[in-house]
Amino acid sequence: MLAGRLMAGLRPRLPNVHFNGIGGPRMMEQGLVSDVPMDTLTVRGLFEVIPRYREIKGIQNRLRDRLLLDPPAAFIGADYPGFNLGLEEQLRAAGIPTVHFVSPQIWAWRGGRIKKIQRAVSHMLVIFPFEEQIYKDAGVPVTYIGHPLAEVIPLRPDVAGARQALGLAPDARVVTVMPGSRMAEIKYLTVPFVRAARLLAQRDPSLKFVVPMAGERQKAAFTGLVATAGLADVALQIVDGQSHTAIAAGDAVLVASGTATLEVALFKKPMVIAYKVMEASWQIMRHMGYMPWIGLPNILSREFVVPEFLQHAATPEALADAVWRQLEDTAGRARLEQRFTDMHHSLLRNSAQESAEAVLAVIGK
């Protein structure tokens, strides 16, 4: 989605442009020729990458060799710093301009990565306002382009329309449950999330639970885990895609840490954030961080505006209690709505135009 908007901004300015690389459907709509399916590169965690390392490294090397043989006007790495920064470093050393779109979370952990970025990146495009000064201080050319999600999500969500689309009563109390789109997220969060839903249903049997699924593979994994854990009695309304509709319909959202937390904030909804990974990965990662927040709404607010539960703390009981407090706290919901409205305005820019102009400057057009 991010790269697709950048490409849409470039196309009118470069009518004969050719896009080649690795991407998904939004990029292909803009004419991308994708060398490999984007899902091939989807890995989460530290130890989880080990079984896939040779495959992913092989893809990186083949892409590098082809680009060195036939240099592009620019290489644009969209997020995925573990793959893209190493590639960008080699390409920039060979004289190919490199643009990195979406800053690695050097402000959250791995601050030493800034030195690699200085070597690898000709120009950085950042999507959060506080990131711009970090790169200016490091001497890396940078442009704040706003967050594309702030353009996609309306400032005033249509709650009634979303509930009608999902067949929910206008006056129902709705909890949206989002265990993630990556298979590893679903593996670790499905059971605690659904157990939390069961506990909430015991407190209020009229509660409705909506669970958007990113695809058939994710849905099959989710329903399989629910059945294996003996949770088939929990009344869940599973919907295909429609994550934005499901968020808009909710009174509160139980959500995996990641970009979805920002989507929930832009829909002005209370949320409870959870994060769980393989235990070995967690033992390493918990010593790497120096920022107290992991959820994007808290990072942008620089305080805990919504609760976070990490690894062992993400128990069904803790999650259910936190969601229940949000459902019951009318004044707190109003404060969050105003806070998230202000956040939405701060992230709102013409990201396609801003990012395209930065790329054009890099390639001298």
Rank of each mutant, 00 (worst) to 15 (best):
A3S: 15
G4E: 09
R5D: 14
R5Q: 15
M7I: 05
R11V: 08
R13I: 03
H18Q: 10
F19S: 13
G24L: 00
G24M: 00
E29G: 05
Q30W: 10
V49I: 13
I50A: 10
E55L: 02
G58D: 05
Q60D: 09
L63R: 03
L69T: 15
P72D: 12
F75P: 10
I76F: 01
I76M: 05
Y80M: 06
F83M: 08
F83T: 13
A94Q: 11
I96E: 09
T98E: 12
V99Q: 01
H100N: 13
F101Y: 14
F101S: 01
G111W: 11
R113G: 04
V126K: 03
I127W: 03
E132F: 03
Q133T: 13
Y135D: 11
V140E: 10
V140S: 10
V140I: 13
V142W: 07
L149D: 13
L149R: 07
R156S: 06
V159E: 07
A160N: 10
Q164Y: 01
V174I: 13
V175Y: 09
M178Q: 03
R182T: 09
R195Q: 15
A196Q: 05
A197S: 15
A197Y: 10
R198T: 08
L199T: 14
A201S: 12
A201G: 09
Q202H: 13
R203E: 15
V210I: 12
V210Y: 01
A220F: 06
G224E: 12
A229M: 02
A232V: 10
A252T: 15
V253M: 04
G258H: 02
A260G: 11
A274H: 10
K276M: 02
K276Y: 00
S281A: 04
M285S: 14
M288Y: 01
G289K: 06
L296G: 02
N298E: 06
R302L: 01
R302G: 11
E303M: 02
V305Y: 01
V306P: 08
A313R: 14
A320V: 03
D321T: 09
A322M: 03
V323I: 08
V323G: 03
R325Y: 03
R325A: 11
A334E: 15
T341K: 02
H345F: 06
L348S: 14
R349G: 04
R349H: 14
N350D: 15
A352T: 08
A352D: 11
Q353F: 01
Q353K: 04
E354L: 06
G364Q: 15
